[in-house]
């Protein structure tokens, strides 16, 4: 295990490394362009977007936001514990973060099931095209993030593990990316129109 003190203020060494931050910014830009597109079409079809938005369950959205934020908090605590060489604590916090992610996926699945049963599928209208694509791609990121965290957690628990602080920080940065995207997606889809 390596918990060396990196000087994060150097240009090439943001927490988690420069590569993960390039991915984070590219993902934010991609989702951002889609969100601007959502607003554009929302103003062209005001009535359709308003009526469609009313068919979304805001409670599901709020609860999912709370679980993602809680998961993000425990992920940040996990990185902090790992930096302090408390591997057991880091592993425990990461598992709690994973549970938060799993609950998010379960709630999202329930929501999707209800939407499909109600006939609110991808081709229903432009609002639901955006809804399915944006939340669907976000869900894929959550699932990929969970796989990354599971792998890091398994390696963390091995004896004489070679896992480095950079690895944990990079995994955490990807996990927080899901929070970052969701805090923009949630109001745009569930509240504005």
């Amino acid at each position: 295990m390596s918990t060396n003190n990196t000087n994060y203020s150097r240009f090439f060494y943001p927490p988690g490394g420069i590569l993960i931050w390039m991915i984070v910014f590219l993902e934010i830009i991609t989702f951002g362009i889609a969100l601007i597109g959502l607003m554009y079409y929302g103003q062209q079809e005001t009535e359709v977007f308003h009526l469609s938005r009313l068919k979304l369950n805001v409670t599901f959205g709020v609860v999912n936001t709370l679980f993602l934020l809680t998961s993000g908090y425990f992920m940040a605590r996990s990185v902090q514990s790992f930096r302090e060489k408390d591997v057991i604590g880091a592993s425990r916090f990461m598992k709690i973060a994973l549970v938060g992610g799993a609950i998010f996926v379960i709630i999202k699945t329930i929501e999707y099931y209800a939407k499909i049963n109600a006939g609110l599928t991808l081709d229903k209208n432009m609002f639901f095209t955006f809804y399915w694509l944006l939340t669907g791609f976000h869900l894929v990121h959550v699932l990929v993030g969970m796989v990354i965290l599971i792998i890091i957690n398994l390696k963390m628990n091995q004896k004489n593990t070679s896992i480095k602080l950079d690895d944990v920080e990079a995994g955490a940065a990807f996990w927080h990316l899901c929070d970052l995207v969701w805090v923009l997606l949630f109001p745009a889809l569930y509240l504005i129109f």
Partner: peptide, 27 residues
């Protein structure tokens, strides 16, 4: 108001949870 709050949340997560507050000013 909703979008302003979303922006504040976005910054809080990146700066505090992702520790970007410690990074180079460019980031």
């Amino acid at each position: 108001g909703i979008l302003a709050i979303a922006f504040i949340k976005f910054l809080l997560i990146a700066l505090n949870y992702m520790e970007l507050s410690k990074a180079h000013v460019f980031w």
